[in-house]
Amino acid sequence: MKSLSADRLQDLAAALSAAGYRVVAPVEADGVVRFAPWSPGAAIRTDAVPVNSLKDVFFPPSEAIGRWRRSGDGFDAIETRPEAPKTAALAARPCDVAALAMLDAVFNWDFRDSFYDARRAATVVAALACSEADEECFCTSVGGRPDAAPGADALLRPADGGRTLIVEPLTDQGRDLAAAASGVLQDGAAAPDAPPEVRRRFDIGRVGAWLAGNFDSPLWKELSLPCLGCAACAYACPACHCFDIQDESGPNGVVRLRNWDACGLGLFTLHASGHNPRPDQASRWRQRVMHKLAYAPERFKVAACTGCGRCGRVCPRGMSLADTAERIAAAAAPAAGPAAGVPA
């Protein structure tokens, strides 16, 4: 069994860095822990869920997807390739890793997105099993668990009361990573810590059944009233993947950018004509919930929510997908059993 002293994560990062990996990990800047490029000396924070998710590594907030040079009345296209350096993503949470199934699906279900795919192929993901859960965590409600990360290349499992991290390679890439870091890994037994208890907040099956028949429910209006229509939840979400395409020009040329976008923003579906098929926050919040828990499972066989709880942590109004799902499950409850008040 290979393992690592928990306080030597930086040494692991340094070893990987020396082996040619760009290391991305939860690091703190200005009091905020973010998934960001690690630089020597930076502490890797395993005690806090980063404010952004692993998604950013594969699908950054803004990136160039096209370039042109002006020439007379025309343009010369310049080939635009993804920036995809060999990368190791360290200490990603299982919920973040789980969201890769959704991202992989949408970026490849028909047309293949070379930008996403190149970074996916160039990145090895070493997940960190959770040793704590907070009140926003709900992975167990959407089919996940805090101590396993299917889809990761390796798993770092806390052991010996948090003093040790067992390194479990899960794929060839993970084995390469372990080999690259062999200098800082030690042999010997360690006793894996018990995973934290993550409260099951709702029955996903019941929620799904309710969603299928309640597009026009008045509950949407009520649930969405606190929503102020920003994109904090969507941008923090490891599975949200909507984007906008915008051109930026200068005197000599043009860069076409893909920028994150979100269904909660009022302009997302606004037509140039002024017509908006989702004219109010109720229809936008419904879209977000439906897309995650109904449309994505229907289309891609995977929920677009992995229970990371970030939406609840970042929402300026304390809304969250879990709260909404809980309310829905409660609304669905009477219908689930024999209908009350209806004569048999």
């Binding site: 160039a64 370039r67 042109w68 040079r69 020009s249 200068g250 000599n252 040329g253 043009v254 860069v255």
Partner: peptide, 18 residues
């Protein structure tokens, strides 16, 4: 400052009169 280089060589090239 906008630091997007439409053309890789634009960054180093001389400024063009426009």
């Amino acid at each position: 400052r906008k630091r997007l280089a439409p053309a890789p060589e634009e960054a180093q090239g001389p400024r063009r009169e426009s």
